[in-house]
């Protein structure tokens, strides 16, 4: 399978650790991962709230380039993943909007038929590669590490292409197969507030507190997530949450590819561990009990 990598804007600046660790894992598992040529921003949740056709054309440019290159898009950022999938869905269902978008794409020398599949790396790893094969390449078991798997909203919602929309388990199974203990985590899909951290911080801080609280109540060693926005909200704002609510959280938050890479033999530099603001304990980095 030809995987076309769509890093998205966050993975180029604030979440480069997600970018490098995803590339590392794909390389380690001998999966070809070619970056989508001259990709542009997906439009995020914000473009859609201004103009519809323009937002769709903006996002569809990526789909059109992928169609031309022939392959599936792999998008690690949950927001990119949802937006690209949504655009795809709308263009496949609504022929008027599709005609309008194609008319616009023509100006950029592109066209979109509607044949591209957009996938999340978690989906690719669990369903295309399979847990058996990943386990076979494991170098360090994650024995004794208690993980709170935090999926965030937009990886299984609204469509739920590869996992349950109320109780996804792909990440649970992945890390359980590598020896980790998965704590019961009922808030695994609870919203972190996303950009509300900028526009309406009081609301977002309270939401993040709940997510951290649930992990701490189960004595989790760390939270593992699949979304750059969730990661930065939970990690970088932890101090602020402690200040505001008088709590005492000190929970590391890692990208799932970072932890997976550690288990597959990466060292701390290969996954840019310095980016994680709450320090990761040596016990987790070493992996060995």
């Amino acid at each position: 399978m030809n995987y076309l990598y769509y890093p998205g804007c966050s993975l180029e600046s604030s979440a480069r650790s997600y970018d490098v660790s995803t590339r590392w894992v794909f390389h380690r598992l001998s999966l070809g991962l070619k970056e989508l040529e001259d990709w542009n921003c997906c439009g995020a949740t914000m473009y859609m709230s201004i103009k519809e056709t323009i937002a769709l054309a903006f996002s569809a440019r990526n789909l059109a380039i992928a169609e031309k290159s022939g392959g599936q898009i792999v998008a690690p950022c949950s927001s990119c993943y949802t937006i690209l999938n949504k655009t795809n869905h709308i263009l496949q269902e609504n022929f008027i909007l599709k005609a309008k978008v194609n008319q616009s794409l023509k100006r950029a020398g592109l066209e979109y038929q509607g044949t591209v599949r957009v996938r999340h790396p978690l989906d690719v790893l669990v369903n295309d590669v399979g847990l058996e094969e990943i386990k076979a390449k494991m170098v360090r078991p994650l024995k004794g590490i208690r993980i709170a798997p935090y999926y965030g909203c937009q990886i299984v919602r609204p469509e739920g292409f590869f996992d349950d929309r109320e109780n996804p388990t792909a990440m649970d199974e992945l890390f359980a197969s590598l020896g980790a203990t998965i704590v019961p985590y009922p808030v695994k899909l609870r919203c972190c507030g996303g950009m509300l951290m900028t526009t309406f911080p009081e609301v977002a801080l309270a939401l993040n507190r709940e997510i951290l609280e649930a992990a701490e109540a189960e004595k989790a060693d760390l939270i593992v997530t699949t979304c750059p926005l969730c990661q930065i909200n939970l990690d970088a704002y932890q101090v602020k949450i402690n200040q505001k609510f008088g709590t005492n959280f000190r929970l590391p938050v890692m990208f799932f590819t970072q932890l997976l890479a550690l288990s597959l033999g990466a060292d701390r530099y290969e996954i840019r561990l310095k980016e994680n603001i709450v320090p990761i304990p040596e016990r987790i980095i070493g992996g060995l009990p």
Partner: peptide, 22 residues
């Protein structure tokens, strides 16, 4: 960071703006 074919993108957006009004 910026994309390489910025001119193409802007031409596309201009057309999409017209399409939006139909």
């Amino acid at each position: 960071k910026r994309i390489k074919r910025k001119k193409d993108l802007q031409a596309m957006l201009k057309e999409a703006e017209i399409m939006e009004m139909i």
